[in-house]
């Protein structure tokens, strides 16, 4: 009994911590959706781009004899610069000309952006699996007194959780306290009204994509340490979609809670349902869960109620 409970806790904790990583990707989606109404399919590709830029420049600098800490800082700055350039190009050449188009067109254009980033990132930085070692990757054993064998918690997951918490607090402060943050919220509320009080839409959209790019960079450091920077990050990022559905497209807390639900849910399902219906449930569980939530509550758990007018 107590062994079963220990196992349950272990699965739950590892699921919750994995869910934090989904939340990190989902956060980028929510930021852009809130501020510009664009559903940014390219977020996963941006994680890939940020990860590749980071790991390749880090390897390059370390190979050229820079001390590790300096190389990390330089590589992070370089990756941030790449994300800024991406944000500028996307705003200037894709979203700028598409201003006032309907949501579906904008969504499809971000699929186009996804392809460009995926192709470009791999062409510039290579397409192998690159290991990234920023955080320790071993594990802790907790509560060894209470459960036989104790609780296995991997350090990288805990790091991910802490980083996500810092990120959320940082974003909250940015949105609530700074001038740019207030302008962002104004644009999210009403484009035309925001323009009329002198807020530049193009600038705001650049900022939003930049912030989303930096969130992608943070996600990339954690994902990359866990799995190595590789193309399949894009598919993991696709899992952020059900997270958004469950949490609601417009809610930052929703993205966090949705990620935790998806992470814990799929690990538990894999551990307890998997043996009966043949493993690999993780592959689709999140999507089917999202489908069920959609049927019951179309706007997600924390989303704003969808009101339709003719």
């Amino acid at each position: 009994m107590i062994i079963a409970f220990g196992q349950f806790l272990e699965v739950l904790v590892s699921g919750l911590l994995a869910g934090v990583l989904y939340s990190l990707v989902a956060l980028g989606f929510v930021l852009i959706f809130k501020a510009s109404g664009v559903f940014n399919f390219a977020q996963g590709a941006m994680v890939l781009l940020a990860g590749l830029a980071l790991v390749r420049s880090l390897d390059f600098l370390v190979a050229n004899g820079l001390p590790f800490w300096a190389a990390i800082i330089a590589a992070l700055l370089f990756a941030a610069l790449i994300m800024a350039i991406t944000a500028f190009l996307v705003e200037r050449f894709v979203l700028g000309p598409l201003i006032n188009q309907d949501g579906l067109t904008l969504f499809m254009s971000t699929i186009g952006v996804t392809f460009i980033i995926e192709g470009g990132a791999q062409m510039l930085f290579g397409s192998d699996v690159y290991p990234l070692r920023l955080f320790p990757s071993d594990a802790w054993f907790l509560f060894e007194g209470s459960f036989p064998g104790g609780l296995l918690v991997s350090k990288i997951d805990v790091w991910g959780g802490m980083i996500a918490a810092v990120l959320v607090v940082g974003l909250a402060v940015f949105f609530q306290q700074t001038k740019t943050g207030r302008a962002l919220r104004a644009v999210a509320d009403d484009h035309a009204a925001a323009q009329s009080v002198g807020i530049s839409l193009n600038w705001i959209w650049f900022i939003v994509w930049l912030v989303a790019g930096l969130v992608a960079l943070v996600a990339a450091t954690v994902w990359g340490t866990k799995l190595g920077v590789q193309f399949s990050i894009v598919f993991l990022a696709l899992k952020a979609l059900p997270v958004l559905i469950i949490g609601g497209f417009t809610s930052v807390p929703g993205a966090i809670v949705g990620g935790l639900i998806v992470g814990a849910g799929e690990k538990l399902a894999e551990a307890y349902l998997g043996p009966f219906i043949g493993g690999g449930i993780e592959y689709w569980f999140a999507y089917v869960l999202a489908l069920v939530v959609l049927m019951a509550r179309p706007q997600g758990l924390f989303g704003e109620r969808i009101i339709e007018r003719i």
């Binding site: 067109t105 186009g112 062409m123």
Partner: peptide, 24 residues
């Protein structure tokens, strides 16, 4: 071959964006 497959990605993406802008 690898560069070609990346180029295909880039060109397809660019064309999609371009088409959506000039002729949705």
């Amino acid at each position: 071959v690898e560069t070609v497959s990346h180029l295909v990605f880039i060109v397809t993406g660019t064309l999609i964006c371009w088409l959506l802008i000039v002729e949705p």
